[in-house]
């Protein structure tokens, strides 16, 4: 059952209720200059109801933390945005490109895996073709695969039902 955002934030030790709507966050936001993200409005919206989970502005935050650093009320705004995002994702709302990146880690252990051009670059530099990561150690990759399975992450990302929700977003 989806929690009310106020309760959700409270359970994470966070609150937006002390916000006085001064707008320092919006004035400090690098994304808000170019996107629809209005942090002050988003914070207000999260105090009201579950609509915030469907708000695409949640995904326009670069997590630069400038708003959080400058908030005169000391509200952990970015931590809160990440918490709201998580609830939204667990409702099945995820941007297609983010789903792809998540899939890469599930399959390869890297969000940005090696490709042919960079195998060549590494050789050109006199380095091993593969780095000392899960790319070189299959057992290590198996550990990662096991972990994303047991945490339920694979199911979360590859859930058939969430495809429908994504279309509806």
């Amino acid at each position: 059952m989806t929690k009310e955002p106020v309760k959700l934030l409270e359970d994470e030790g966070l609150t937006f209720l002390t916000c006085m709507q001064c707008g320092t966050c919006t004035g400090s936001c690098p994304s808000g200059r170019y996107t629809s993200l209005n942090t002050r409005r988003l914070v207000l919206s999260a105090r009201r109801n579950k609509d915030v989970y469907h708000d695409e502005d949640l995904w326009m935050c670069t997590t630069c933390y400038q708003c959080q650093e400058r908030c005169p009320r000391g509200i952990k705004i970015v931590d809160g945005i990440l918490t709201l995002r998580t609830e939204s994702v667990h409702m099945g709302l995820m941007l297609p490109d983010h789903r792809k990146v998540a899939g890469l880690v599930i399959d390869k252990g890297h969000a940005v895996p090696i490709n042919d051009a960079n195998r060549e670059r590494r050789k050109e530099l006199g380095m091993d073709e593969l780095p000392e990561t899960v790319h070189k150690y299959p057992d290590a990759l198996e550990q990662v695969k096991k972990l994303v399975e047991v945490t339920g992450f694979v199911q979360l990302v590859r859930n058939e039902g969430s495809e429908v929700a994504e279309e509806g977003q």
Binding site: T63, L82, V105, A111, T133, V134, D139, F153
Partner: peptide, 20 residues
């Protein structure tokens, strides 16, 4: 650090599922 994986990337993974 042999066998390390993606950190995992904070933007997507932290947003998706905290425990993962």
């Amino acid at each position: 650090l042999a066998g390390a994986s993606c950190c995992p990337a904070p933007g997507v993974f932290r947003s998706f599922d905290k425990v993962t």
